[in-house]
Design a protein around this nucleic acid. Structure first.
Lengths: 221, 221
DNA sequence: TGAATAGTGTCTGTAAGACAATATTCC
DNA sequence: GGAATATTGTCTTACAGACACTATTCA
């Protein structure tokens, strides 16, 4: 009997100077051997305790990345998305600060625009589009973007992250009021200077309670 | 080689007098034969064009229901959730007005509390919990609850639906302002009287554009 | 006419955005 | 001191909720 192919794929998202990026790797095997695609692979029944485990394993094995934020996105399925036959891909998306991706660059990972990705095999463009939509949607009313800002960051930096994701300028006073209200940041001793001759900004880090769990806002922004 | 089991399960949600309900069917086969569970079944590679098709087919075949709203919820997976072995269940949730479920009652469907479901096989309780959480979350800021109100409904009826889902009373004036702002309802000619001696309410129906697509609110409620 | 609920007008408090003043750093 | 950006204070505007009034039906 013809069996359904069960895989996981991960849209690894990060924020670069020129916008939101998705990480791609050249495929090591057929189909689409040596074509750039989302990191993905078969579920291993012996070693994976669930699909999330499989996604983590794939990221670690193929890119050397242990993502600080990983969430199930959606499952893509059908007879035509994979030339090998009827397939199911449980898709995840991960958020990684730009710094962390540098290591992965050495392992062959390249970054492509997440908003206008190049041609990709399978239905990976649909997966990327869904990941970007999910990220943008959740950015409206949650702490999700913090995971793109890195381990520590200043409020002006974090505001720029939100602004890039939401694609609109935010009111500085309102933004700070919201961040205070969310009560999810811890100030880090010492401060940080930016480009130079001006007042340095306070450095913050996400409170431990919000590393794995999102903080939601009642009214958005 | 041991193959992964690929199934779909559907949490069929409806609103009764005493709260949110989930539809259960007695299983026709092993495992858990004749135990009440969510409607579900194998993906059929020959006939299903994707997992959503499988979910529709399962609902139609086993309950005779063509749900007005059906959305992918999440995928549950692991070696232990199904005694047959490592399995993947692509879970969906469907919203059905109470009226529509009456037909299904004749086909053996029973309703259980969705908030406090009885013991269920597999990880069906987790699926129900996820479906309820998703519904409640989306009710805050979208037109989703309309699909529980039936084909046509009055604004007071719709407000009660929202109130039940959100588990809090809503301001009448604000609620109506929001509904007007969302601009998703068409008034139906004629009116409707409720329990009797008082002014009848205008009957509305969802505009066609919002039958399959949700309308989202900027600020919630 | 009275009871009951539908639908609307209006006031008030709260929260978001605009604007601007103050703070702190490097040169 | 001057430039530049961080941070905070305050005013204005928009919107959500409270309250109350009008509308419409049935008995």
């Amino acid at each position: 009997m013809n069996q359904i192919i069960c895989t996981v794929d991960v849209a690894l998202l990060t924020l670069a100077e020129d916008g939101l990026k998705v990480g791609l790797l050249r495929r090591e095997r057929e189909p689409f051997k040596s074509v750039a695609a989302l990191p993905g692979g078969y579920i291993h029944q012996e070693s994976d305790n669930d699909a999330r485990d499989a996604a983590r394993r794939v990221l670690m094995d193929k890119a050397g990345i242990d993502p600080p934020y990983l969430e199930q996105l959606a499952t893509f399925s059908g007879p035509a998305r994979d030339p090998r036959g009827w397939s199911v891909s449980i898709a995840y998306y991960a958020l990684v600060p730009a710094q962390l991706l540098e290591q992965a660059g050495e392992r062959g990972m390249t970054l492509a625009s997440a908003d206008h990705p190049p041609q990709l095999p399978f239905d990976h463009r649909a997966i990327v589009a869904a990941a970007v939509a999910r990220l943008r949607s959740k950015s409206q009313y949650s702490s999700l973007p913090c995971h793109l800002a890195g381990e520590t960051f200043t409020l002006p930096q974090l505001q720029k992250v939100y602004e890039t994701l939401m694609n609109e300028p935010l009111n500085k006073v309102s933004f700070r009021r919201k961040m205070t209200e969310m009560d999810m940041l811890d100030p880090v001793e010492g401060r940080l200077e930016s480009a130079g001759a001006h007042r340095p900004a306070q450095v913050y880090r996400l409170k431990a309670a919000f590393r794995d769990e999102l903080q939601l806002l009642e009214r958005g922004l």
